[in-house]
């Protein structure tokens, strides 16, 4: 897939480019706001990684103009500003996700993957089936191999996010944001503890652990399990 990287720090940009190309993607680098706007308007990209503090036209201005010009490619906004109002501003300007620097490369790719494979808004999915696990959002029930699995609300939400992204890595911070709406990282391992309870309940229903831990990255629901 083609990714536009608009980042004024050359080293960070190169690092992102190298990492994305190692994963088999094509990256285009620009370092100024006007160039980003021009590139996004002339070529079609599958995703745009946009730094918030670009020389010339700021990342937010680029984003607003892109959205005004009906460029719908998902935008991941990168920023050194992690303030509450900064994030709200970014999302209001039309960003699809927001990543505060510094970040692990795995975090960036996990979020890009989530953005790229996001189904269109009209396509509402209410039932997920991965391997022998099913999750029904309307009936709020989970089965494994046909057997009901009783989950606490947060365990249910965790499983939902893992199944939505089945086969792909979901990071701890993504889970904190998606399940709890927390944009901070508590010193207490809340994700791990809920996840371990979810795992043991799924194991108790029979079979192997369908959730794998990807070292240094996050968790992944085995697509065929």
């Amino acid at each position: 897939m083609r990714v536009l990287i608009a980042e004024d720090d050359i080293e960070t940009a190169r690092f992102l480019e190298r990492g994305l190309e190692e994963l088999g993607h094509t990256a285009t680098l620009v370092s100024e706001g006007e160039d980003a706007l021009h590139a996004a308007a002339t070529c079609e990209f599958d995703a745009i990684v946009l730094d918030r503090m670009l020389p010339g036209l700021s990342g937010l201005d680029v984003l607003r103009r892109l959205r005004a010009a009906k460029v719908r490619a998902p935008v991941l906004l990168l920023t050194a500003l992690g303030g509450i109002t900064d994030r709200v501003e970014g999302l209001e300007a039309g960003a699809d996700d927001y990543l505060v620097k510094p970040f692990a490369f795995a975090e960036l790719t996990a979020r890009l993957n989530a953005l790229l494979r996001r189904p269109p808004l009209s396509d509402v999915v209410t039932r997920f089936e991965v391997g022998d696990v099913t999750l029904d959002l309307l009936r709020r029930d989970v089965t494994r191999g046909g057997k009901a699995v009783h989950l606490q609300p947060r365990e249910f939400a965790l499983l939902e996010q893992l199944m939505r992204h089945a086969g792909r890595v979901v990071t701890r911070t993504m889970l904190l944001e998606l399940v709890w709406g927390y944009h901070f990282d508590p010193q207490t391992n809340i994700v791990e503890s809920h996840l371990s309870r979810l795992r043991s309940k799924l194991r108790d229903a029979g079979g192997d652990d369908p959730i794998e831990t990807v070292r240094g990255a996050g968790y992944r629901m085995r697509a065929s399990g």
């Binding site: 709890w180 508590p186 207490t188 391992n189 809340i190 809920h194 371990s196």
Partner: peptide, 14 residues
């Protein structure tokens, strides 16, 4: 309530 329910398993684990 939400924060307590969120932290309870991790606190129990410790």
């Amino acid at each position: 309530e939400d924060v307590c329910e969120t932290f309870q398993p991790a606190i129990a684990d410790s």
